[in-house]
Structures are given as structure tokens and as C-alpha cells.
Design a protein around this nucleic acid. Structure first.
Lengths: 205, 205, 205, 205
DNA sequence: GATGAATGAGTTTTCATTCAT
DNA sequence: GATGAATGAAAACTCATTCAT
């Protein structure tokens, strides 16, 4: 299908890509408000005017970036947790995949978390809400995994599966952030570590 | 002690308080960059000039806000985890305290998490690093609690106590955020819930 | 007469003096626009309000300073050139006096020349004109000295006495500025040097 | 060479010129601190933003103005005093040239002298020092003229040639200022007048 | 489509001045 | 007379956006 694109169309897409990549580099390094359209134009080796031929505003450029990564991110993870296999295996696969995504997309991850975590105001009003919706969709699907596990008798029913999903996702994130913060000091968190903490009773009986 | 302040001094402190409160309301609602000094002045019912008599810049006003809450927040939690009592009790007390702090300081909590989570660039360069240092101090102290518990044989040694501290802090945060996001749908997370998830083995043997 | 001033009146004058001295120090060092009333108040160890009890505006404070020095400066020089004695002697006395005044009033001299030389706009519109009037009065009196010298046959009538007055005043100023600029490199200009250049024909016949 | 500039480039230069001319008019009339960027923009018939596209700050705009005139001014005078011809002729040519420059560049001359004469604090810190360096270079070259004259036996060695240079430059300036102040009353100072005063012994023998 | 000069509303900050105590 | 907190107009500067070429 892509082959049917004319040279012009291919070039256009390529230029858009270059602008988005330049913008991503700058936004993730300095934050939305500390980057100007002029700066992005220079980084992308286009003029400001050209940026406005592709995106009708700075906001839209930013949103495109965030949605793009959010799409990719979620579809990858959903594919991982919904594939064939038993629950434990799929949980491990999901933790592993998330680790890989973090490693490979550091710049964009920072940007993404700046949007989803913390402030309920976001750099751009409205952005956050949409991302939250997607994130909840993902959590629902992860809950399903726990539900199934409980149904099959693999997991105990300690709590609402949704809370379990939230918990494991956040614990793994926090370990990834730890590593991201100081890669020398903290080991890159292996799925096993997360599962060990998560599954093994701490309390002696 | 406060009685020794002259009326003028008391008034001055009161005015500073009013400005900080107004700024907090606006910053937490709209974010640092989307609030102007003029807006804060209006909200505080003072003139812009007066703001600058108290804080030498917008940045400084923001920092004052963040540091103030960070101080209060950390000292309260540290007091809670380092008080007398057995480890389980102290963990519960800490989870309860955090819940209360969240409930009572919603506006500022949002602001605080916008600074510590997510972006490694922060609205104000330099802020984030200092807050991270404080947070790590807290995590170290929480690790001690786990260490002691392990030493006493109350906890099993499933992982480095520091990771346990990180995990429980993040799990409880994530539940609090869930509740914050939609108080009708999600229960206010009780310490018991967190502990149950955290301590009880999911896996059936 | 001054003895009849009450303690209150004497104190008032003293305070005014202190304010003017502080203002002079700051103005001469940093220029009118780079000094704030707050700064002057701090330097004088009074409050801003007190400054306004003595001077109705920053401009008025500045003018007072300039007029005061201009008065003192001119009356001293006029007294010197109009005293008893032959023309040569009086010229020497005037050159010597000016040197002394420069040496003893460096700060104020800088301020004064910033007002009279160079820009026809002055920091404060209107100031310059009044000072120019005074300066012309002085030049007229100095011209008289040359006129008398010519009438008596002491000087040759090479040019309009007014031009001679302007010339000698400026030559001596320029030498004083040279010394002021780099006291190590340039000798403190003795009246003799100025007169030598001024009176002695350069041209060999 | 100029023909190689594209229309756009020529326009850009023209616009820069218009801004500088507008700024010059206002600065020389009212002084640096009494002119706002908005005022300059209005005078130049551009927007404030455009001013900042050409000059990164108000200071830089001012400096450009001062340096431009200083360059032109000095190179013209240096060319005049270092051309072929005997010393007397070259002195006359220099006095004549200075008169012409004054007449043709009144606005900018005022600005220039506001910077070089008078206050040792200057409107813009650092500016004054650089201009002084250039002026001293000029004085050195003028000294050379006197040195040569003395060596050739045209002039008597009444004083250090540098002082002679300083003296003649200041005397001629002061006459030019006199004329500038009141063109009706004071004749435009002819080189002859300056030389007559400067060279002819006043003193009868 | 690409360019980049021009725009001007909006932002932070300063500071002379006032006035209640 | 002395104080200094409060004022708010004015200034320098930024930057997303437009549009003629």
C-alpha cells in the first residue's frame, strides 16, 4: 500500500517525520514551554513556516508526538499481555517488554510520564484526559489477566484484579525509574525481581 | 513565641501566607507556565509589586511553595515511620498518614508530584534534584524499617529492603491517585488493602 | 546666625545633609538612572518615606545636589578670578583653584560634567539649560580678565576674549580629565603647564 | 558588490538602517534612558518584535549606533591627519574636517560626546572604556604630527606632544560646541581661529 | 510546499511615589 | 518627622503565528 505513494507524498511524510523527531528531541530535553517553534525549525532544518504547513499549532505538534508514542506503547503492551500462554508467562513478558520500551525510548518516555503522572493540569489542557482513557483501557486488559489467573486457580484472590493491575504496573514503573535515574547504581529491573516482590509473601507464617 | 511578633510583623506573615495560598491554588490548577504573576496578584488581592516585595521572582515564589510542602510532607512521614512500635504497625501508620496528607493537601500534592514524578526536566531546573534528594532520604529510612523487620524475622528477605520501600511507596501512591482521579468509583485506599496486596502471596502453592 | 537654630532644626539640616551625601555617593558612582530611592534610603540609613519628607521627588533631590555643587564651584572660581592682582597671577590662581576643586570633589565633578558636557539632553530636562547659564556667566567674567589684560597691554589681541576664556577653561579641563583618568600616567596638571602651552608661541619665527 | 545582494537582503539592510536612524533621532534628543523600545518601534514604523529581530537588546542597538559613528568619525580624522602635506596644512585640514563632521552629524555627535565626555559611569557599562581606547589611539596619532613638526623645526618644543594634541582637540571641540549651542551668536569656528589662538603667543614681549 | 521577516499581545520585573500608623 | 508596605504604570523582552514572495 505504501508503495503507491508518489515521491512527493513520500517526501512529505519524511519531512513530517523529521520535524516530529526534532521536536521530540527538544521537548523531552527541555520541556514544552522551554522550546520555541523557531528552535524546532532550526533543529529540523526547516523554516518556521514549514512547521505550520504540517501542524496547525505548537500544541498540535506536541499532541501528535504524545499520541503517536501512546499508540505505539499501548498496542505493544496489549499485544504482549493478550498473547497465548499462561498468566505468569504473560506477566513476565509484559514486564520484559516494558523494560525494553523504556530503554529504547527514553526521550519520549520522559515526555509521556510528564503528561500522565503527577499534575492533573497538563502542559496542554485536555491531553491528559485522553491519555488516561487509554491507560485505563490497558489496565482493564491487565486486570483480565489477573481475573483469568484467579479463575484458573493460579492466583489467590487477595484483592480486586484491577488493583492488582495498578499495583504491578506501578511497581515495575518505579523500578524502571530508579534505574533510569542512576543506571550505575540500580540494576536494570528484571521481571523476576518484580514478580518476586509481588508474589512472594513477605510475612513469615 | 508568636506573641512576640509585632502586629506589623504578624500582618506581614499573614500577607505572605495569602500570596502563597493564592499562588498554590492557581499553580496546582493550571501549572506553573499557565499562571501569570498578575493573575496571582489578583487572586491574592494584592498588586504585582507586593508579590515582588515578598518573593524576588516568580521562580522563587514557586520554589517556596514546593519546599514548604516537601518539608512538611517528609517530616510528617518520617516521624510516622520512626516512631515506637512494631514494623507492621508502623507500616500501617505510614500508609494511613499518607492517605490523610493526600486528602488534606490535594492542590499541593498535585504540584509536588508534577515536580518529582515524570519529567526529568522540571519546570525549574534544579528544583527536581533537591526534591529527589529528600525523597531518597525518606526511602532510606523506610528501607531501615524493612531491614529491621527482616532482622527480627518478621519479614522474609525477598529482596533488597530499598526495593521493598520503593515498591510499597509507589503502590500506595498509585492507589491514592486512583481514588483522587475518581473518588466515587475507587475506594479511599485503606492501609489494609495495600498491605494485603503487598504481603499476601498471590501465588497458590 | 546658625546658632539660633533649635536642636530640631539643626538635626533636620543634618539629616538632609546625610541624605544628600548618600545620594551623591551613589549617583556619581552609578549614574542617575541606575540608583533607586530605596538604595539611597539604605545608604543614608533612613526610610524612603523620610527621603520624600525632604525632597518632593527623586528629580528634586538630584537637582539640589547639582545646584549645590554648581553654586559652590562657581562662587569659588569667580572669587579667584576677580580678586586683586595682575592678570597672569589671577589666571594661575584660577587654574590652581580648579585643580584643587577637582581633587577634592571627584565624585561630584563627574556628576557635574555628565550634566554640562556632551549631551544636550540631560538626565533631567531643563537642568542643563540652567547650568549652562551659570557657566556662561563664569565665562563672561573670565573674558573680562582677558579684556583687561589686553587693555593694559599685557596680552596681545589675538582673538575675541570670550574665545580665549573658553579655550583656556577647556584646555585645563582636558588636562585634569587626563589626570583623573589615569593618575599614575599623567602628571597632575600644574597651572604652569597650561599657561606654557597657552601663551608660548609654538611656531618658530 | 552591493549588486550581488538579493532584493530581500537589500530590504533587510534598509530596514535595519531605518531602525537605527529612528533610534538615533530619539536617543540624541532624549537620552538612552528616556526612550523606550516601543517609542523607537513607532518612530521606525515597525513593531517591537522587529526591533528584536535585528538587535538582541536595547543595549545592543545603542552600542551599534555608537560604534558605527565612532568608526566613521575616527577613520575620517585619522585619514586627514595622516595624509601628505606639511604639519600646519594637516592641522588645518583636521580642524576643517572635524567642523564638517560636526555639522553633518549633529544628532549622533551629541550622543557620542555623552559617552566619551563627562561621566565615568556611562549609560552602558563597558562602552565608555572601548571608546576611550579608540580616542587615545587618535590622540597618539595626532601627537605624532606634533612630534614630526618639532623634529623638523616647524614647532617649538613647549610641551609633551601628547598634551599639545589633547589641547588642540579640546579647544576645537569647545568652539564647535559653542557654535552648536547657539549658531546665531557664535561663528562657525574656522581652523584659522583655532590655530591663531593656539599658535600665536598671547603675551607681548 | 518552503521561506523567514513582521507582528503584537502577553509576560516578568522595576521603582518612584503614597499613606496609614 | 519617620517608617516601610502597598501600589501600578511602565519598561524590556519573548514567541506563536501570519503571509507575501
Amino acid at each position: 500500500m505504501e508503495k503507491q505513494l508518489s515521491r512527493k507524498e513520500r517526501e512529505r511524510l519524511q519531512h513530517k517525520r523529521e520535524i516530529m523527531d526534532a521536536a521530540l528531541r527538544l521537548f523531552s530535553e527541555k520541556g514544552y514551554h522551554n522550546v520555541s517553534m523557531e528552535e524546532i525549525a532550526k533543529e529540523a532544518e526547516f523554516s518556521v513556516g514549514t512547521l505550520y504547513n504540517f501542524f496547525k499549532s505548537k500544541e498540535e505538534l506536541y499532541k501528535s508526538l504524545i499520541y503517536e508514542v501512546s499508540d505505539k506503547f499501548h498496542s505493544l503492551l496489549i499485544k504482549t499481555i493478550e498473547r497465548e500462554g499462561d498468566e505468569i508467562e504473560r506477566l513476565k513478558a509484559y514486564l520484559k517488554k516494558k523494560g525494553e520500551i523504556f530503554k529504547e525510548n527514553l526521550a519520549i518516555i520522559k515526555l509521556y510520564f510528564a503528561e500522565t503522572k503527577g499534575a492533573s493540569f497538563s502542559v496542554i489542557a485536555g491531553l491528559e484526559k485522553e491519555l488516561r482513557v487509554r491507560y485505563h483501557d490497558f489496565l482493564q486488559r491487565l486486570s483480565k489477566l489477573f481475573e483469568e489467573g484467579i479463575r484458573k486457580g493460579v492466583f489467590e484472590e487477595v484483592a480486586d484484579p484491577f488493583y492488582l493491575a495498578v499495583a504491578i504496573d506501578n511497581v515495575s514503573n518505579s523500578f524502571l525509574f530508579l534505574w533510569l535515574e542512576d543506571p550505575e547504581k540500580y540494576v536494570y529491573p528484571e521481571p523476576e525481581l518484580v514478580l518476586k516482590i509481588f508474589f512472594k509473601a513477605l510475612l513469615k507464617e
